[in-house]
Every structure is written in C-alpha cells, then in structure tokens.
C-alpha cells in the first residue's frame, strides 16, 4: 500500500458516499445514470468473486464488501425507492454495446484463461467504460448538479490516482499489470473533458453546464 493507492481507494469511497448522500438528501436520483450504476454493480460482482476464494487482508475484504453493498444500495434507491425521480428518457445508452465487447475482449486478452481471471479482466475492461452512460446523460441534459459533479470528479480521480500507484509500484517493486494499466489509462482519459469542465466551472462556483 502506498499513498497513491490509499488516496485512490479513499477517492473511490468518497465518490460512492457522495452519490448515496445526493440521492438520499434530495430524495431524487435525477441526473444519475442507472445504466452506469448497473455496470458498476456488474464490475464489482465480477471482480470481487475472489472474496470467497482468496483472503488478502482485512482492508481488502472490507473495501470489497463496501463497494458491492453500496453499489446494490444505489441500485435499490434508483430503481425501487426513488424510482419516480429516475431520468428514464435521457438515460438511453445501450449497455449491451459495452458489456458484450468487454466480455469478448476479456476472453481474448487476459493473463490466464480461468473463469475467475477472465471475469476479473472483464471487470477491468468494463469499469474503464462504465461511466459512458453517465457522461452521455450529462451531455443529453447539458448540465449536472454540483453534487453530481463532485461525485464524478471523485470517481474519475480514483483511477487517475491508481495510475500514479502503478507508476510507483513499477519503480518501487518492479510490479506491473499491463491489463489494469491500459484499461486504467483509457478510463482516466474518458474523464478528461469532464475534469476540464469541473476545474474551470464547478470549482469557481458555477453550475456544470455544457455549451449549447
């Protein structure tokens, strides 16, 4: 564990908490893509299957449980409790266009062809693009509430911090995982446009609004 990795994990945790707070406090999931949240749930379940096979550390186990549980809690709030506020019409991204290619890619490019490893690889590829329905929703409505922007910033920062963690681990430990690094770079790049808007607008107290 190094400082980048810890900061990345905490940023990830913060993102999830911000999202739950936003939905709970406003009693609404307007502006949040249920499609992205479904994809994140798929990511966590397919990645953390090793919870039942491998014990790494208490920290590792607890964080995995928190991610899986909070992900399903978010889905519950969106699709059951505050279903009426869900922005169904704007959340029209077709997730099968992400799920299928990621799965095929995981079958083709993986570190070892075992069920757990293929599913882990699938989750890495899927996570890289899982935010696309959310970004698509923001681009369709042309704006995002400030708390939604904070959520997206924390979520994007997490993988950017992981990139620093991987660079650190390469030099400090000689450890690297090309699949995670490549997918993590793609994931971070997808947020760049949003990062720019966040820094130039939201941090200056303005609402995140896309140019018409």
């Amino acid at each position: 564990m190094n400082i980048f990795r810890l900061a990345g994990d905490l940023s990830h945790l913060l993102a999830i908490i911000l999202l739950l707070i936003k939905i709970w406090k406003t009693r609404s999931c307007a502006g949040i893509s249920g499609k992205s949240q479904i994809l994140f749930a798929v990511v966590y379940v397919s990645r953390y299957l090793d919870l039942v096979t491998t014990f790494i550390s208490l920290y590792n186990t607890l964080m995995k449980l928190v991610f899986i549980t909070s992900s399903f809690a978010t889905l519950y709030l969106m699709y059951v409790k505050f279903k009426a506020t869900y922005d169904h019409n704007h959340d029209s991204f077709r997730i099968e266009f992400l799920l299928l290619p990621c799965f095929v890619l995981a079958l083709l490019i993986n570190a070892s062809f075992t069920p757990l490893e293929v599913l882990w690889t699938f989750s890495i590829y899927l996570e890289a693009v899982a935010i696309l329905p959310q970004l698509f929703l923001v681009s369709k409505t042309g704006e995002a509430e400030s708390i939604t922007s904070h959520y997206l910033f924390a979520l994007g920062s997490y993988r950017a911090l992981y990139l620093l963690n991987w660079i650190y681990r390469y030099y400090a430990e000689g450890h690297y995982d090309l699949i995670a690094i490549f997918a993590g770079a793609i994931q971070t790049i997808l947020y760049c446009d949003f990062f720019y808007l966040y820094i130039t607008k939201v941090l200056k107290g303005k609402k995140l609004q896309l140019p018409a």
């Binding site: 990795r5 090793d50 096979t53 790494i56 550390s57 590792n60 995995k64 490893e117 995982d177 995670a180």
Partner: peptide, 10 residues
C-alpha cells in the same frame, strides 16, 4: 503478470 495469491488492488 498475475500474482498467485490474487489481485491485491481494488
């Protein structure tokens, strides 16, 4: 390179 003990990152 996959560590035999699994992936330690989240």
């Amino acid at each position: 390179e996959v560590e035999e003990e699994g992936h330690d990152e989240l």
